[in-house]
Structure formats: C-alpha cells, structure tokens
Design a protein around this nucleic acid. Sequence first.
DNA 1: ACTGGATCATGAATTTCTCTCAATAAAACC
DNA 2: GGTTTTATTGAGAGAAATTCATGATCCAGT
Lengths: 298, 298
Amino acid sequence: MIQSPLEMRHLQTLVALADTGSLSKAAERVFVTQSALSHQLKLLESHYGSPLFERGTKPLRFTQAGARLLALAREVRELTSEAEREVAQWVSGGGGQLRVAVECHTCFDWLMPAMDAFREHWPQVELDLVSGFQAEPISLVETGVADFAVVHDRPAPRTGVAMAPLFTYETVAILSRHHPLAQKLWLAPEDFAGETLISYPVDDDMLDVVRHFLAPAGVKPKRRNAELTVAILQLVASGRGIAALPAWSVQAYLERGYVVAKPLGESGLRCELYAAMPESLAEKPYLQDFVAKIREGA
Amino acid sequence: MIQSPLEMRHLQTLVALADTGSLSKAAERVFVTQSALSHQLKLLESHYGSPLFERGTKPLRFTQAGARLLALAREVRELTSEAEREVAQWVSGGGGQLRVAVECHTCFDWLMPAMDAFREHWPQVELDLVSGFQAEPISLVETGVADFAVVHDRPAPRTGVAMAPLFTYETVAILSRHHPLAQKLWLAPEDFAGETLISYPVDDDMLDVVRHFLAPAGVKPKRRNAELTVAILQLVASGRGIAALPAWSVQAYLERGYVVAKPLGESGLRCELYAAMPESLAEKPYLQDFVAKIREGA
DNA sequence: ACTGGATCATGAATTTCTCTCAATAAAACC
DNA sequence: GGTTTTATTGAGAGAAATTCATGATCCAGT
C-alpha cells in the first residue's frame, strides 16, 4: 500500500466538493473555511502530481484523477458509516428512541428523506414525530418530551440541552412573474407594505421574514395562510400576494418559471438551523448519525 | 455518516495489530512508539464505548467490535491502494523500471512475495534483479545501475541516494538439539571460539553475526559454506557447526524441533534493513509502493 | 508464591499539523 | 470598468498526536 497523505477529511472534502460544485460551498458543508480546503487540495494535488479538478468552471469538473478519488471517497464513506453503525448498534444494544419536534413546515422537505434513511439504518430505534408545531420546540427537549428539535438561529444555551448546527439556507421572496416588484433586483422591507404575505398558518415570530426582515423595519403586511407549499405557490402565481420561503423548497418551481424569487434585502436573508438535543443523548451514535444525514441532505 | 474520529492511521494500526498480534510489534511496523498506539486505541475505544480487543492474550483477540473495524480497515486499505495505484499510473504514464540489488541471500525469502505482488500491481514497470551479490549494492544505486538496493544497518548518507527503513529482525544462532551450547539461554561471542560457523558463501563483513557480534569480540571461528538455507540447516542438524540466520527464515524448522535457536548475546542481535534508492526516483509512487509491500511482508 | 522480563498504560512535554486570519489575486457579473 | 464573489497564499495560533519517562500489569519459570 502506498503511504499516502489521504485522510478521511480529504474524502469528505471531495464528496462535498462534488455535491456542492464549489470550494466555498463545500467548505460550508464541512464546517471549515475555504482557505482550509484550498490548502488541503493543494497538498493532495501536489502529492498526486496532478490537478484533481478544473477550477473556474461552475459547477467544477473533476479530472480523471479527481473523479477516481471521488469514487473512492464515496465507497469508503459508505463502508465506514456502515461498519460504524453496526458497531454502535452492538454496543448500545440496539435500543433507543428518537422523538423529533419541528417548528417549521418547510423543514419537512428535507426532514423526510433524512428520516427515511434513518429508519432504514437504525431499525431498532423508535422514530416518532412529536405532533403539532410548537412555538418553542426547544422546551420540549428541555422537558424530556422530545429528543430532537429543529430550531432557528443560534438559541441561547440551556443547561441540559446540547446544540448542533445543521445548515444554513436563504429564504427568498416569491412573486408572480407579472408582479411589479418582480423587476427589482432585491426587495426591501418597505416593498411589503400594502402587499399580502402568504405563508403557513403559524405565529408571526416563527417566520424568518417577519422576525429578521419585516419586524425590524416595522412593516406589517396583511397575512393570508395556506397549509401546503404548493398551495402557497398557487396563490402567489395568481397574484394574490408575496411569499417568503427557503430557496431550496421552491427550486423546482423556479426552474419552470412558474414564479420568480428575489433576495430579501441587498445581500439576501440567510437563516441558520440548529438541532437541540438532550445533553445526555447528544453523544449517542444514532443521534449523531441523524444530524449527519440531515447535513448531507439525505 | 457518523462523524467519527476514525482516521487512516487507525486503520493501519488495526491491521498491524492483527498481523503482528501485539501492541509493541504493531508499533514497530507502523514506525511509532507503543505509547502512541496505546493512546490511539484508548481514544478509539472510548469513542465506540467498547474495547476493541482483549489485552493480555497472545496473540491478542479482537472483540466483535474490533473485528468489525478490522474488516473495515482491510477493505478500505485495499480500495485506497487500488485507487491510488490507478491514479499514479495515469499520472506517470505508467512507465518506469525497477532494478533491484540485494546483498543477502535470506532476503529473497521476503523479497519474492513482495516482487510477485508488485508485478501484479504495476504491470507496466519493468522489474529486474541486478544479478550477483554485490559487496556494495548501495554503490550500484549511486552509479545508476540499480534503482533499489537492500542494505544492512543505517548506511552513511550519500548525495543522490535516499534511504528508507524497511524493517528490523533478529538473527539467532542455530544449533543441533544435542549441541552442548543448546543448554544455554543465550550465546556469548566466546561460545563460538572453536566452533564452526556455517553460512552462505559471502565475505565476513556481510554477515550480521560476524560484523556485529563476533568481530567486535575478536572471535574468528572456522567457516564452512553452503548455498542454500536448507543445506545450512542440514549441516547444523548433523552437528557440523553453528549457523546464524534471521529468525523468520528458520521459523518453520524451529517449530518442528529440527534445530534450536538461541539469542546472540543477552538481549539478542537485532538488525535493521534499509532500502537505498536514487533520490530522483524515491518519490515515485511505484517505488513507495514497493517499499510498503516489503514492510507489510507481502 | 515470588521474581524477572516483557507488555501495556499513563501523564507531561514537545513536536507536528491543520486551521483560521488577513491580505492578495483572479474571475464573474452587472 | 468597477464591484462583488471566489480562490490562493503566507504567517501565526491552536489543537492534536507523538514521544519520553515512568509506573502498572501480566505471565513464565523457579
């Protein structure tokens, strides 16, 4: 075997690179700086004596060598996580439960795949959804009613509750293609005055737009509710108002030109999602794996 | 995927552990201290919450968890070296030659398997043996006649020649079971006075025993030669004299009780083997792989 | 049971590495 | 062409693994 500088972190980097298509996105995904990845890759490339991907293309294209190592990375990751799951299940006796509390509707878009994958990999862990959309899902964790809560922004630390960053996303304004505001490059809070905000039937302070964008500016548009994302988009498309949703949840509709998306504010509205877990369980392999699955979007 | 502390070095450790059956031997194999491995394993075990092997058994026995991770390690190592070979062959264009020079007879015991494995993995590299047993194989490298030389002890650095440690071994005295000296726990140089030393037909200073054991004590026993290891053992078994050979080269005969082995000196005579390569080629993947194959004994 | 030798564990110090930071360079996008 | 994103580079900080020195443990042989 060749003594190689190839480490697990490099494999993670390669996979993230392939998944995100860019150095900076990949860096975000693995929670390091772009600089770190640049260093990593420079080292790898100098060792193999060949570039691993072409820079300056979007998305980046792997070279033959890069593609081969990427394939290796995927194989190794798969094997590794499988082995570690097995070991973890033997050690823990296989039991456990995972009661998930969610405060936002759109979260289900990415929660479902993660839960599906989880059920398959941890058949012995009881997976439940704590029903209803609690205003304070974190308190459900605190009181022992839930084992996992998805919360917005970095929450204040609470004793007995461990926090872990999940990922960040941008929430964008969704408008009909014919809406007058669709001409602008980005929307200001004032643009919402006099408009109708179409959203899920939840409290004001649970909406990213309101909490971080409209409320600080003192703007309070009319509200209209819909339960489902598609329903919201229907209303938007027919000019009944503006919505504000996570960019990824409307990706498919945007590509079809069904509606258009505009950044909220000049630099967009970025939101962070965190997981809250009981400190006593936070180290459990199945919980860590659940977090990892969410981060990977699978 | 579970965020794990599992690194390539841990996998190497596990494999070495399984191959050698002991912490300290494994440490030698991967060129670190026993302490380092102890720390490594402690960390791993605390992470997985379970011991990975039973201590105090010889050879050590892996637990279920340990065995699973060992299996993972073997898979990953195999995949990794395969991928890296492919990449290296693309990058280098696949060419190259490897002319091997050897100064000792017994070296062939472990050189053959390594060369066989090499031929299979690097079909495009011309593998040759520089014939004859040179007194100074290292000079063959210096003069560009060979690309790889096996040498004893740490040689003096020469410009243009890179050195890499291969492994260490113990050379032991081989005696007939009925030899008077067979009663002793270990042999002193003086014990050889008046005895016949049976060895390969090479110069004195190419024999570990003479160079590091007898010569320093001023003992010069009679010499008798044989070309093959089996022939030497025949002579020893029939009481014609004493031999001194690497422990591993006579393993099989010792187990059958054919002859007996005694340490040379109270703490045994340990010898180091090094590889000498042209500096210009030392970084070539195929050379590094060849070194690695030798170290692994495959 | 006791001693000797080997194997392994532990704690502090050191070395080694990776990462971050900050500034620079390059590119893309209007 | 200026402006904003995106990537590279070098230096410094911080963390982590290794080594060193020592102590504990275990097995063999008397």
